[in-house]
Design a protein around this nucleic acid. Structure first.
Ligand SMILES: [Zn+2]
Ligand SMILES: [Zn+2]
Ligand SMILES: [Zn+2]
Ligand SMILES: [Zn+2]
Lengths: 144, 144
DNA sequence: CTTGACCTTAGAGTTAACTCTAAGCTTATA
DNA sequence: TATAAGCTTAGAGTTAACTCTAAGGTCAAG
């Protein structure tokens, strides 16, 4: 049985974060001392490590709550349930990457168009593009 | 001179958002009616469109505040200042894309390892990977 | 018996960019 | 002159995942 700071060291989570996860039902201390100190078993540590691993991959706390409930009773949950959660997360990630890549292209085009030199910004093509009200990537066929 | 809802139609921003931007110094109504109604000039519209364009590209409100102060007096600001802001934003975007791509690879590997079928999750390789405490991408050379 | 490190709780603060609510005033239209 | 649409403000709520604070209790070492 280890205390919260030791669990923190083992998992790389801060005691604050561990308590926060507990409040959200992700982590539990299977024992408390008389004074109320949390004590964690080996199984508690494994659960906390599971949470940490899932978090590192990018799962949300809600996703993790679902994965943990599957973990608690694997026989009554299917691989499909697990892949559904995973695929859904992957979809979100793909969507976000696509959005960011659009920004990336816009920013790269802006940078390519401007010298970046010490001359004043009177004729800066970045400013001009923004003033034209169009993103440099979205600028396809707006008027005839 | 147009009212706030018309500015909203022209820019695709809601009146709420326009007032929010005003509170943060991005947009201003150059006139108010006696009753206090905001009235926007052509120049105000162009400024709002600038904000909208910059926002669409992904600039933060703080970035936009800087770009606007350059726009107000282009002769005393350089192209370099403009590219600095743009490059800094691009760096952030690139960094975020890299993080998301790491997640993407992890999630893809997880999905590849699991059948996703209706069998129960007792031997689910996704669960096993998470229980091993390692992300499937970060799993290089941890022990000897 | 006194430090000092660590633990407890409830609850507030952080970040970004909105988004909405309440309560009341204005304005155009029928 | 109603009625409805639209405007005003201040301020609260939203989201996610922490992060920190305050005020106090516990415990091992010297
Ligand atoms: Zn289920
Ligand atoms: Zn330039
Ligand atoms: Zn400057
Ligand atoms: Zn599986």
């Amino acid at each position: 049985m280890i205390k919260i700071s030791e669990l923190g060291e083992k998992t790389g989570l801060s005691p604050h974060t561990i308590r926060f996860y507990e409040k959200h039902g992700l982590i539990e201390a299977s024992q408390r001392s008389e004074a109320g100190y949390r004590f964690y078993s080996e199984a508690d540590v494994r659960r906390a490590e599971f949470v940490k691993a899932a978090r590192s991959i990018g799962f949300s706390l809600d996703d993790i709550a679902q994965l943990l409930s599957i973990r608690l009773d694997k026989t009554s949950h299917s691989c499909q349930e697990v892949t559904d959660i995973t695929r859904h997360k992957l979809d979100e990630v793909n969507e976000r990457i696509a959005e960011l890549q659009t920004m990336q292209r816009s920013l790269q085009l802006l940078l390519k168009s401007c010298s970046g030199g010490p001359e004043n910004a009177t004729h800066c093509s970045i400013m001009e593009t923004l003033e034209a009200g169009s993103s440099p990537v979205t600028e396809r066929g707006d008027e005839s």
